[in-house]
Design a protein around this nucleic acid. Sequence first.
RNA 1: GCCCUUGUAGCUCAGUCGGUAGAGUGCAUCCUUGGUAAGGAUGAGGUCAGCAGUUCAAUCCUGCUCAAGGGCUCCA
Length: 647
Amino acid sequence: MEVRVEGQMVEGQAGDSVAAVLQKALSGKKFKAVVAARAAAGAEELLDLSSPVPAGCTGLEPVYADSPEGLQILRHSTAHVMAAAVKQLFPKARVTIGPSIESGFYYDFDVEKPFSSEDFPAIEAEMQRIANAREPFTREELSKAEAVERFKAMGEDYKVEIIEGIDADTVSVYTCSGFADLCRGPHVPHTGFAKASKLMSVAGAYWRGDEKNRMLSRIYGTAFADEKALAAHLKQIEEAKRRDHRKLGRELSLFTFKEDVAPGMVFWLPKGMLVRTILEDFWRKEHLKRGYDIVQGPQLLRVETWQKSGHYDHYRENMYFTQIEEDAYGVKPMNCISHMLIYGNELHSYRDLPQRYFELGVVHRHEKSGVLHGLLRVRQFTQDDAHIICAPEQLEGEILEVIHLIRDLMNLFGFEYKVAVSTRPESSIGTDEAWESATSALVQAVEKAGLPYTINEGDGAFYGPKIDVRLLDCIGREWQCSTIQVDFTLPERFDLTYVGQDGERHRPVMVHRAIMGSLERFIGILVENFAGALPTWLAPEQARLLTVTEAGDEAVAGMVEELKALGIRAQADTRNEKLGFKVREAQLAKVPYILVVGEKEVQAGGANVRLRNGDNLGLKSVAEIAALIRTDAEEPFKQGGMRYSFA
RNA sequence: GCCCUUGUAGCUCAGUCGGUAGAGUGCAUCCUUGGUAAGGAUGAGGUCAGCAGUUCAAUCCUGCUCAAGGGCUCCA
């Protein structure tokens, strides 16, 4: 037979292994990096190097260890190596599953005493020993009955449960370093590939991800094709840590948490609140320009109201309750009820529609103690929430407008984003017809906007389907922010109507939507994305004027006043410190414009301009500096297609 | 809520194999008038997360509670 490998034709005998054929075509160096192969271009199934070339195969595509697919195989194999090491050191541990994940792999074990990171050195040493031994992975096919018997004999009950759930006649088992594991494969040819690995953390995880099941002990690890790639990955983790908004929030004096006073609730410090205020002001203006009305409802509503809306039945565990005199009240977890009551406050004509109510609404949700995370997951947060009440025929157009607003906001910050449409969940209210028409309105609007999207089956809200938008930050992480939800239930429960052209009462449709999602979360994401160096329009301090000696104090005071008069957030640093020290502090505070005023500058009536990236623009007059800062601040708005101009 | 780890000065962290604690940084005062990422000195600052227990004695050992970090489940 003749087989094509990377453009070369190679002669082979029937029954030759994949490795034998590849070895003829590839240089020794290249062949060493191959972990698996596929028999035909685009084929799903991957082959082990040790498996025979399938009959009729005309081409083999090698999969290299450093390719995304190769890495997956490598990591999965490393998970096996880790399990082998663990079984060696802790013979009583029972194995469950050990897949590769985005940045590495994990393996879940059932052990009496959960693992701790103190166990890592021993496990890692054993893994290195196995890797150095370059032991082969061997594959065998067993009937289900045989496999069940075998794993039962080993006491691996979890594996037995998995095998019994597999819908096939035979299963494959891989053995490596004396450790046999149920596995689809493929695997790297030998354990020598698992050399560049590192155990990362331990965690509890439920068997099959169900919190009713037994808690297993999970070990996370990662592995790469070589030490260099592993080191680069570890460096990137450091980079993410460097950007952590909790760290930067403290260093830049933006916000703080008082765990003993109010866990999961933010204390905004002056600088952070300034950032937030700038963002809020901009966002209110943008909404006014786009035809929204700004409203505000109460923080507490009587429990009966929550019962009427359905929140009490579907969302009670996440709500806080209190009492005023004899009456029970619920703290609002959402803003929609007030908005509907505001709509219902007067009779509406079809001419009034759509009504768009916008509120920077403070909501409280009881989040379980283990899930709180800085600004990204809190118990009290502010939604940039709006409810659009419109006639059914206006629905699609309104959704499209919201999508445009999302697009413009993402462009403003240079975020890319992904769209997903979520459909009806199990716990839900409303008729099938209503769900279908609402889901189709969402899909149509997304298609009209020309955006690629995915479908999340069963992930909708209890009252209707939704569109979720995840933004991608500059180091490739995804964040859920925007959401657009159609609701046909609440207008009915609160008997909202409008008078149509025909003089009859009609039922409007409602859209819940939030673009930033939560201001707290959004600001946390901004801080991480920009590593604290917020764009000039959002920077709490846009310019800092530094004196060299106290001879510059007077000139600096004058310049600060001038800049402030021009709408620029400027501050003076006239402390009795050396210039180098002040520059360092301004730089660490991520102030975009660092203005140095010494003897020369006082003479010339200006300042020396240094940017936070270290560039020095030389001497400039106050007017020039002001123009520079204003242009810089307005630039993103022009690029982002915002209707609101920063000026 | 569950699993692992952690909780010492505003921040970052040492430390005490049980005898109530220390550094750097920040803060205050003084000296220094210095040109683009850290000038020097002195001083103030701690119920060692909280509550119980063991002990002559607990910041240290044990238990519980609270909170944080990493996960699981859930979610904006």
